[in-house]
Amino acid sequence: MPIYKVADVVFAIKPIYKYTARLCEKYLYSGDEAPEFSAVMTNSDIDAERNQAGAETFPDYYLESLAVFRKLCDYILSCRQGIIFHSSAVAVDGKAYLFTAPSGTGKSTHARLWREMLGDKVVMINDDKPIIRFIDGDFYVYGTPWNGKHHLDTNAHAKIAAICEIRQGKENKICRISPQEMLSVVFNQTIRPVELDKMDNLLSIVDKLLTSVPLFRLTCDISREAAETSYNAMVKNNIK
């Protein structure tokens, strides 16, 4: 069974379809650590994922890849103090900045504006489904193979310097927001577990995240000025 390392977790996958293996190729692991768990995929995993997807229809191979991701997130939530945080995560000079919003708002677009402005200084950790973990008092974001429609990810991790909620608007404005204001945003951009013990794990991680990482809200259009506004505030600590 092929072995992978994602978010510093070594695990094996036995997929039914080739797609998942191709998707995760960059994360193949050949070191000495033993896998912490195995994701042996079955048709019932795919059926469960189809039920989660609701009205949208996806091919089985794609649903399988999502089911693998769900198993990984479930393991990390239970055993490694980590969660999926639906966002576009970029790193500049070794520090990570996370843009989050409901799908279609412009997370990926804003990350692209940073790349256009800063060029090679920007490392795309993950454009859609990074994993964040709490390790020794700090939060880190990890690239994962589940990288969104533009397929942008790096098998790397970086300490989280700031999180920014993105809203569309005509004027480019950014402000610091409170943990209370970010709470429902984060809650809506992660997988919410059904079991009480896992829900308590999630809430404990979210509590630590929101009280230790600087939080911002950016209202923006699609322009260089938008990128400058968020960059100045989040990286240069300069809010106009």
Binding site: P179, Q180, M182, L183, S184, F187, N188, R192, P193, V194, E195, L196, M199, L203, V206, D207, L210, T211
Partner: peptide, 21 residues
């Protein structure tokens, strides 16, 4: 209580009918 806020969430069977905070 999370990050200074009181919130209510659903777990178990209740998730079927309520999915937010």
């Amino acid at each position: 209580e999370v990050a200074g806020s009181f919130i209510v969430v659903a777990v178990g069977e209740a998730v079927k009918n309520f999915n937010g905070i």
